[in-house]
């Protein structure tokens, strides 16, 4: 089953003479195990697409489906439940709640879902271990580097049984080496059967994806495979 499917999705903001289409007639799908990169200039609708895909916002027209479930048919509570259980987010920066430790940040979606604190903490530790961050479980965000914070954010995005990982410029505030390590983790999630959408404006990072979708003025301008290059080779290596 297609993990994420957008069918002729349009998103409008404002009304009257201030009305603007952020996305127009966008259709795309993401299969399990697939990492799709979305590229485009500023204002092209990348973040809007991600918000619609994660149920943070609703489409003006068209349909968004996650694992076959039409998000427009869900209420606020069901959408929140879906985000807790199946969808993970990683933002460019300030991903973590400052008052919570790394472990608490990661276990938050599970605890909100009613999982007993001890079990949630166990699952968080596992997710952090996957990101090679287990030893930093009790650190607060300000005690972590930018790369470490992004890894904790990815751990939170994949903890539990999340299958769709949405990353909005996760490497934007990182140096290239740290950025690559973050991308490796995203790639790893997809290689374990999850699906991912990566918004980036950097071709080097898009090369980690299986497919690249180009957006311009809210429309899909082009769609292609990842370009060949050393980063792609790296991705192939990581996949192997």
């Amino acid at each position: 089953m297609t993990t994420l499917e957008l069918a002729r999705v349009t998103k409008r903001f404002g009304s009257g003479h201030l009305e603007v289409d952020a996305l127009t007639d966008v259709s795309m799908g993401v299969q399990p195990g697939e990492l799709v990169a979305v590229m485009g200039p500023s204002g092209s609708g990348k973040t809007t697409l991600l918000s619609l895909a994660g149920g943070l916002d609703t489409a003006s027209e068209g349909t968004v489906r996650v694992e076959g479930v039409d998000l427009s048919s869900l209420g606020a509570r069901e959408l929140a439940r879906l985000r807790r259980r199946r969808i993970g987010y990683v933002f460019q920066q300030l991903n973590l709640i400052e008052g919570l430790t790394a472990g608490e940040n990661v276990s938050l979606p599970l605890e909100l879902d009613g999982v007993v604190t001890r079990s949630a903490r166990g699952a968080a530790l596992e997710a952090l271990a996957l990101m090679e961050m287990a030893e930093l479980v009790d650190r607060f965000p300000e005690e972590l580097s930018g790369g470490e914070q992004q890894r904790v954010a990815i751990a939170r995005a994949v903890v539990g049984e999340r299958i769709l990982l949405l990353a909005d410029e996760p490497t934007g505030a990182l140096d290239s080496v740290t950025g690559e390590s973050v991308l490796r983790l995203l790639r790893g999630h997809c290689d374990r059967g999850g699906a991912g959408v990566l918004v980036t404006h950097d071709a080097r990072f898009a090369a980690w994806a299986d497919r690249v979708v180009f957006l311009r003025d809210g429309r899909i301008a082009d769609e292609t495979r990842a370009p060949e290059g050393p980063e792609s080779l790296l991705a192939q290596t990581a996949r192997r």
Partner: peptide
């Protein structure tokens, strides 16, 4: 962030 993590 609470909302993004699934908070209602």
């Amino acid at each position: 962030l609470l909302g993004a993590a699934g908070g209602e």
